[in-house]
Simulated assay, not measured.
Amino acid sequence: MSRRGWVLFALMSVIWGIPYLMIKVAVDGVSVPVLVFARTAVGAAVLLPLALRGGGLGRLRRHWKPLVAFAALEIIVPWWLLSDAERHLTSSMSGLLIAASPIIAVVVARLSGGGERLSGTRWAGLGVGLAGVAVLAAPELTGGDPWSIVEVLLTATCYAIAPLIAARRLSDVPALPMTAACLTLAALVYTPAAVWTWPRALPSGQVLAALAGLALVCTALAFIVFFALIREVGTSRALVFTYVNPAVAVVAGVALLGEPLTASILVSFALILGGSVLATMGGAPGEQPGDAPEPARTGQV
């Protein structure tokens, strides 16, 4: 991989590893609809001009049904669920649970008839990864906030299904126009709820900084860097950074928010990461031989 590729890879590892931290800060000052609206509206405002300049928006019309489904499963539903869950869960726990997306993607691809035959290694990866999820979620399910755990796992499931839609139904749609359109649609969907729950007083500087970071860095800039990374190293290599994001989420939560670094977090991190690597060996979930999908998102916040 070239030096430029490594730089882009490192940027993506950080950019999509810190949203959990920023969401945790932002939900303490604004409602979930306002948070998601700010992310999507600003992201759309940045990416739409780029999409219009590059062309390709016209090709979206004949794909509007899968495009709406993709937007719902990649942005509209999961960003609400994750933000609501982080009102009660630590950012590091949320980041680790989302790391189960590749494992869920393997299962979904297999059940939908589009996945490769699972080898013994991949079956072992599924088991190891799910064991990691169980280690992490068990305390919350038995004596904490089980609904928040369910919300994050539903988010991970959405992130697992959305790329399959992109690969199977939107593979001939340019990624930048598709992303800009999805963010615009999400912003429109959240506008009424955001207006209804708009804060009466100006949020703190920390909250405003978190919102700005989510919108400008973790949404708009992230997609630009992601597309550049795909062009530089290809889709398969580009997606490897998703295995680094959980570590960034844990380090950020512990170092900047003082979240606990417990033995269960360390064990679950090793199990989920190891399981994800094993479960996805031998091909991307749902990817058929000869396919070269260019997904707009891959299970990131």
Rank of each mutant, 00 (worst) to 15 (best):
V189S: 03
I75N: 13
E287Q: 14
S94H: 08
S268C: 02
H63K: 14
V34T: 09
G274C: 06
E232N: 07
E294M: 13
W64M: 13
L271V: 01
A105R: 08
A105K: 10
A41D: 02
A279P: 08
A284I: 13
R297P: 01
V46G: 08
L216V: 14
G286E: 07
L221N: 02
L52P: 10
A193G: 06
G58E: 08
K65Y: 13
A252P: 13
E74Y: 10
R122T: 03
I76R: 01
G132K: 00
V107R: 00
P246N: 15
T280D: 04
L89D: 09
R59M: 13
P289C: 12
W64A: 14
A10E: 05
C182G: 12
T219Q: 02
A284W: 05
G282C: 03
A166G: 12
A100I: 10
I15K: 02
P146W: 07
L202M: 13
V77S: 03
A296Y: 04
A201F: 05
I104G: 05
A100C: 10
A138G: 02
S92D: 12
G275D: 07
P177Q: 12
L67G: 07
S236A: 15
T219P: 00
V68N: 11
M178A: 12
I76A: 15
N245R: 13
A220C: 08
T179M: 10
V25P: 11
L11T: 09
E232Q: 15
G54L: 00
G120R: 11
S101H: 11
P246R: 10
Y20P: 01
F226W: 13
L278T: 01
S268N: 00
A134P: 02
A138C: 04
V150I: 13
M178P: 02
V189M: 03
